[in-house]
């Protein structure tokens, strides 16, 4: 399976320009022999939208010119794209859509919205409430958006739900640590994904955008990692790129034969313990409130 990592640089709040760019990139990915193209978080809209979120939001539950163009594009090549999704009751989600064969297969709404330091996503977006794998023409897959990857349990849930591919998309601003002795508490996204791939014996692709918004530089540096943590492909830092990674399902099979970690996971035990902990801390009620 050949996956094109489409490390693009969207224009802020210009859906038409970004859609045209996505169409061009899909054509280029096809030329490069890809079976699937993966675009970054909010690739259709740009990242630092704030008050512009409602202006660029897309209804996926009914026909519309942008949704229909995306669906039509997937007749040429399946792809995953980050966008702002508006629900029927007008909540706005930082979401990722998997299109293939002319239809929308799955929408993942970002579950963990970073709202600290330089991030204020929970000001502008509603929290996703589901983590689920889904069937694609390549087998079962799962999608995570940026901060979702920093919560390792999200990958665990997808692996337990049968995902044999995890697609991570991001709009991650570059920020160095500023001192020679690197702070060991800051694992890079790359190290993090290698560990997640190995813990779950699952191939992971990570597509981060490039370009600048409001003084933020998005680092690029997209990559694909195999089920043994091995690097399959990497894109350059700080520039647009289209890199094709080959994910071999046989390598995943071999990894799972050697390390049956997913097989030996204990979802029932985990669910029981999580219920106990959630009850104790009053978090269950919080979830029921849908917050």
């Amino acid at each position: 399976m050949r996956i094109a990592l489409a490390q693009t640089d969207p224009r802020l709040a210009d859906v038409e320009a970004n859609l045209a760019g996505i169409e061009r990139t899909v054509a280029a990915a096809l030329d490069a022999g890809a079976d699937l193209a993966v675009f970054p978080e909010l690739a259709l809209t740009g990242y630092r939208l704030r008050d512009l979120v409602p202006q660029v939001a897309l209804r996926l539950d009914r026909a519309g010119p942008v949704r229909d163009r995306l669906a039509a594009l997937s007749e040429r090549l399946p792809f995953v794209v980050g966008l702002v999704e508006e629900s029927a009751d007008h909540r706005f989600y930082n979401a990722a859509a998997w299109f293939e064969d002319g239809r929308l297969v799955h929408v993942h709404r970002k579950v963990y919205l970073p709202t600290y330091g330089m991030f204020d996503e929970a000001m502008d977006f509603a929290r996703g409430r589901r983590l689920a794998a889904f069937d694609t023409r390549f087998g079962r897959a799962g999608i995570l958006i940026c901060e979702d990857l920093w919560h390792p349990t999200a990958t665990t849930v997808l692996a337990l739900d049968g995902a044999v591919l995890v697609v991570g998309i991001a709009a991650s601003p570059l920020r160095g640590q500023g001192v020679g002795s690197a702070d060991p508490s800051h694992l890079s996204g790359r190290q993090l994904a290698e560990v997640l791939a190995r813990f779950h014996t699952v191939p992971m692709v990570y597509v981060n955008r490039s370009g600048y918004e409001e003084g933020l530089a998005f680092g690029g540096g997209s990559f694909a990692i195999g089920a043994m943590g091995e690097t399959l492909a990497e894109a350059p830092l700080l520039e647009e790129a289209l890199v094709v990674a080959t994910v071999d399902p046989d390598r995943t099979r071999a990894a799972r034969a050697a390390y049956p970690l997913v097989r030996d996971e204990r979802p029932g035990l985990l669910a029981r313990e999580l219920r106990r902990i959630a009850r104790g801390e009053g978090l269950e009620a919080d979830e029921e409130d849908g917050r």
Partner: peptide, 10 residues
């Protein structure tokens, strides 16, 4: 609370 980006539409 007029939270519009400087790069609005650019």
């Amino acid at each position: 609370d007029f939270r519009l980006p400087r790069d609005w539409g650019r």
